[in-house]
Amino acid sequence: MTSSVVQGRARLIALVTATVVVSAVALAMMIFYAPTDRVQGVVQRIFYFHVPMAWVAYLAFFVVLVCSVGYLWRRDLRWDAMARASAEIGVLFTTLVLITGSLWAKPIWNTWWTWDARLTSTLVLWFIYVAYLMLRAYTPDLERAARFSAVLGIVGFIDVPIIHFSVEWWRTLHPEPVVVRPDPQAPPEMLVTLAVSLVAMTLVYATFLVLRTALERTRDENREREQRRALEEASYA
């Protein structure tokens, strides 16, 4: 028991250290190492936050999907605690993606917002997982909240590609990805910086997820303990 706690603590310290170090390196690289974009200027550097955050948001919602299936299959609240944690982080990162995107769009597209396919589907995605968090908050019974939100975690994620394509057929303007092309236009320094930023942001996500899941677990355990105590007191009386 004690050794596993110590081991868990050592692993957490390692994770936090790695997150801090890699994030610092990524930050230094995006300021000093990556060249300034000739056309877009310094604004382009927000791209090293924007793209990794978008990746983490999708990763977080994918983790919600996996944990939702896991919960419905096993009925273990540990799955649900992780789904809860990941959904919250996903909403946070989606919010940041929308904000960083707007900050970039104002000088480059000369508008904060446009109803382009990628922007629109990201906004709808944000609404789906805000609804997920609201559903949890509005369902008083924990077991029922876990079950309902697991269903929404599955339906919502299945809906993501459908929304994406339907909005894309509707209209699109977003720049095509310049990274995953046969002959990359972006210079290698930019790509390396992006890769390091992706790793850094994924580590940030992992740290948040571990801490938040542990917090949710502690909350669940406290609730269970309180319920048990109330039950015992009632049976003595």
Binding site: L135, D159, V167, W169
Partner: peptide, 16 residues
């Protein structure tokens, strides 16, 4: 309150 908030984002493809 909950039904429309759950429903509308999921139904975007149908509405389009």
């Amino acid at each position: 309150v909950m039904l429309p908030i759950l429903l509308f984002p999921i139904l975007v493809p149908i509405l389009i």
